[in-house]
Simulated scan of single mutants.
Amino acid sequence: MTSSDSLVRRPGEPVLTGLGLGAPAADPADSSAYAFPDGGTWRTEIPSVEGPEALSAVLKESARLDVPVHRISQGSGIWMLSDAEITDMVEGCAERGIELCLFTGPRGSWDTGASTRTDSGGAGPRARGHDGLAGCVEDALRAAGLGVKCLLVADEGVLWTLHRLRTQGALPADTTFKVSALIGPVNPASYALYERLGADSVNVPSDLTPAHLTEIRRVSGAPMDLYIEAPDDLGGYVRMYEAAELIRRGAPIYLKFGLSKAPGIYPYGAQLRDVALDTARERVRRGRLVLDLLARHGAGGNMSAPGSRLPGPLRRFAID
C-alpha cells in the first residue's frame, strides 16, 4: 500500500469503526504495482459519444461541471460517420487535449448471420469472414488518415491485424487500440493475451470483482477500461462507491462513465438525436458524481495528467 492509499477513507468510516463494524484493513499485496507513464493511476472516459453534436454537448457539459476527460469513445462505428463528421470530432477533441476513439467496422451482431440472435449469441460482435475483417481494416485506415489516433476493436483477429499494420507503418506508430467491452476478457490469461496481440487498453466486463482485477494485475500492466456505471446491455451495474478500490486494484485504469436505464443508441442516427444528446450530458454528470465521491474519500489524487494518452511500454508477440 502506498502512502496515498493509507489516506483513503472507506465509505462510512470512521463512524462504523466506532460501532465495532469497521472494515478490515486493505491488503497491501492487492494494490496494483502499475501506473500510466506519468505516474498517474487513473484516467476518465466518456463513452457512446456518437457524433459531432454529441461531442459538443459533452465538451460543454464537462467544462461547466469541471469534469476532466482523457478519452471520448464512440460505439456505432467509423462507417456510420462521414469524413466531415470525423474531422469535426478530431478537431474538437484536439482543442481540448482529449483522445478520440472510434469503433472499427462491421460486426457480427449487425450482420446477416442468424447465430447472433440465438440464445448462444454465436460469434457475437466479431468480424464475420474476410469481408468483415476487410471492413474493419478499411475503417481503421480511413479514420487514421483523418487524424483519429485511437481505434476500438471487438475481434482478436482484427486487433492482431491492425497491430501488424501499425508495426509495418501502414498505421501511425502512435495509434492506440482499445478492446471493446463486448469481448472483454474475464481471466488473467486472456487479458495478457490481448496485451500480446497489440491492445493498448482492455475493457473488462463490469461485473469483475476487485479480486479479479488483482489477479489480472499479477500478469499484465496494460491499461484497463471499466464502466463505473454500465449500460443495461452490459449489466447495468452502478459501482460508484467502489471507485477508489477499483483504482487501487486495477491501475492504470480508465474510469468509464456509462449510463444505466437508458435507451440503446447503436447504430446512431438523427432519429435518436434527443436521447443521444440527453444521455451524453448525463454521462458527464455521472462522472462529476464519481469525482466528488473520490474527493470526499481522499482518493481523488493521482489522476493522470490531462491530455495524456499513451499507455507506456507493453509486451507483444513477435511479428514474423
Rank of each mutant, 00 (worst) to 15 (best):
I228A: 06
D225E: 15
V153W: 06
I228Y: 11
L234S: 04
L165F: 12
T167N: 11
G235Y: 12
D139T: 05
D233Q: 01
R248C: 11
G198N: 00
A192N: 10
P231Q: 06
T116E: 00
R126A: 11
L152K: 11
Y194N: 06
V204Y: 13
N203L: 11
L208E: 08
H130C: 02
G236V: 08
V137Y: 05
R239L: 14
D232M: 06
A230W: 07
Q168A: 15
Y241H: 08
I216K: 08
R142H: 12
G198P: 02
I247Y: 01
R117F: 04
L141S: 13
I228C: 11
A134P: 01
D232Y: 02
D155M: 01
D155Y: 00
L151H: 14
R248S: 14
V202T: 15
R248T: 15
W160M: 05
S220Y: 11
Y194M: 15
L152A: 14
D207N: 10
S115I: 04
V219K: 02
E138N: 05
G157R: 04
T214L: 05
C150Q: 06
E215V: 02
H130D: 13
T214V: 15
T167G: 07
L213T: 07
T118V: 03
G236F: 07
T118I: 03
R166I: 08
D174W: 01
A243P: 07
D174Y: 08
A243I: 02
D232I: 04
L226E: 03
V179A: 11
L182A: 10
A143Y: 09
D233I: 05
D233N: 05
P223K: 10
T214A: 15
A192G: 14
P231L: 01
R217P: 10
A173T: 07
A211H: 05
E195N: 02
D139K: 00
P210N: 07
I247F: 00
Q168S: 15
L208P: 08
H163S: 12
A140N: 12
P210C: 06
A143P: 08
A243V: 09
L133T: 03
N187M: 02
M240T: 13
D119N: 08
L133I: 13
A243Q: 01
T176C: 11
Y194Q: 07
T167K: 07
N203Q: 14
